[in-house]
Each structure stands twice: as C-alpha cells, then as structure tokens.
Amino acid sequence: MNSSPASGLAVAASGSGAVAEMHVGDGTRRNALPGRAWQRLAAQVEELGAAPSLRVLVIRGEGDTFCAGSDMSDWADAGTGYVEESFAHMERAFTAIEECPVPVIAEIRGAAAGAGCQLALACDLRLMADSARIGMPIARLGILASPAFAARMVAVAGPAAARELLYTGRLVDARTAVALGLADHIVAEAQLTAHVGRLAADIAEHPPSAIRAAKLAVTAALEPQRRATAVNPRPAVARPHFDRAIAAFLGRSPAAVPAPAGRRRL
C-alpha cells in the first residue's frame, strides 16, 4: 500500500492489477479532506487510470464513513483565493474520476455529504450500506452550488430531486437514495465490501477493451452536459455567511465576523 498521511489519502492496488482500491481519508474527521488531499486524490486516480491492466477502481472511505466532504478547519482564517483554489482541487478530483477510463465504484457507508456526495456522484456505480446517508448540506454554510455540482445530481436524480436536495440540504437514507437514483443498490453494512468485491470481479472478467469502450460511450453521451457546466464564473462561497458558518462549526466566537444581512419581508 502506498500511503500519504499528510494528505489524508491512501491508495492500495490489488495483486492482479485488474481491480484497484482507493481508501479516502485516514478515519479522522469522518474523512473530510483538506484542499491538498483533493489534489492528491485527483493525481492518484489519474495515475491508476493510466495502468493498462486496470479494469475497475473501487473508492471507499477509511473506517465507518465514506467522506463528510471538505475539512472546514482547512478554511479557518483562509483568504478567498485559498478557498477558491480548494474548490478547484475538488472539481479536478471529481473530473478525474469521471474521465477515468474504467468503471469506478463508490462503496458508501456512514455519510457521503457535500463534497463527499459529489465524490460519490462522480463514480459510475454507487453501492450504499443500509445505514448510510447522502446529500448536499452546503447552502447553510454559505457554499454556492456550482453548475457542475448541480449537473451531477440532475444527471442521476433529475431536476426536481436536485432542487429539493440542494435547497433544503437534507441527507437522505439509502432506501430514498436508490429510489431517487442517487445510488444503485442497498446492501447490509456487514456485507457491503464483499458485495462490492463481487461486482468489481464480475466487471473485471470482461475484456479490458470492452469495459473501456463502455465507459467511453457513456462519457461521450454526457459530454454536452459537461461542456455546459465546465465554466463557473461565480465565486465558490458567499461571505460573510461562509465565515460565520466556519466559525460556528469550529466552536469559535463569530463576534469578529460581520453578521449577514437580515431577511427582507416581501
């Protein structure tokens, strides 16, 4: 196993080389990742995808959580440029997964929230433990949903569900996720890893050229949608709402952060 404790990301490849496994996070902070870890994740996906023998990539969180999104302590007292750069690293990671030449399977247990939800949605197949939850609770943090964020959710769940989940920020359970199209299968938590292993093995039995052609065909079908969301001129966060949310999350006094404007009655 190659590991990078500083980045919070570890990667392990199977002995055959046909199936690679990527472990996200180090088991702390519910596997929420700082910007440099998203950057490392993208590089590792690209590196693994370049291996001619690879047929399937499995992504799972370390421990009992898939990924709780971004590590908000990484943004404490951070300037706008650093925050925007962090979101660029995230998007590069999601794009690397979408452009990986082989199928990518997300093994979801615990929570897949915020950027963790986007990480799961970027994968080709999503299997959820019966106790897992998924969603985008970002609006309350003053994080502005990008067109790419919305597009991934619309692609699998449709615009109505995407609106409701982005507007409310609620996390849904595995049964609801499958009903909405956010996940493909529910599996008992104790059997999840074994089930994912069998699915990966089934896919890996097919000729590599056929597997890669199928992935390429789906990617080509989604290309018009991806082009429409490639440019995001808007900022990633709304300040000072974002600064106050980070302060509250970290248990800091928000006194030094200007209060957001009050609501206006219509």
Rank of each mutant, 00 (worst) to 15 (best):
136 M>C: 01
151 A>D: 12
153 M>R: 13
176 T>M: 06
135 G>V: 04
146 S>A: 14
161 A>Q: 11
174 A>Q: 08
166 L>D: 02
160 A>N: 08
159 P>K: 14
149 F>Q: 08
143 I>H: 00
153 M>S: 03
154 V>M: 12
165 L>W: 05
158 G>K: 10
152 R>T: 06
157 A>E: 03
161 A>P: 04
146 S>W: 01
133 R>V: 09
144 L>R: 14
166 L>E: 05
160 A>P: 00
171 L>M: 10
163 R>K: 14
174 A>I: 01
176 T>P: 03
168 T>D: 13
175 R>P: 03
168 T>H: 05
176 T>G: 02
169 G>H: 07
147 P>A: 12
168 T>M: 03
168 T>S: 15
143 I>R: 00
133 R>T: 11
173 D>N: 13
137 P>Q: 01
138 I>A: 10
134 I>F: 08
173 D>C: 09
147 P>L: 10
162 A>Q: 14
165 L>H: 08
169 G>D: 07
174 A>E: 02
149 F>W: 05
130 D>A: 08
143 I>G: 00
165 L>V: 07
155 A>D: 12
135 G>E: 04
132 A>Y: 09
133 R>W: 01
164 E>K: 14
144 L>Y: 03
153 M>P: 07
167 Y>M: 09
152 R>S: 11
163 R>A: 04
130 D>V: 00
144 L>Q: 13
132 A>G: 09
131 S>C: 01
149 F>M: 12
157 A>Y: 01
150 A>R: 15
151 A>N: 05
169 G>R: 07
164 E>N: 13
134 I>H: 02
135 G>L: 06
146 S>M: 02
137 P>T: 02
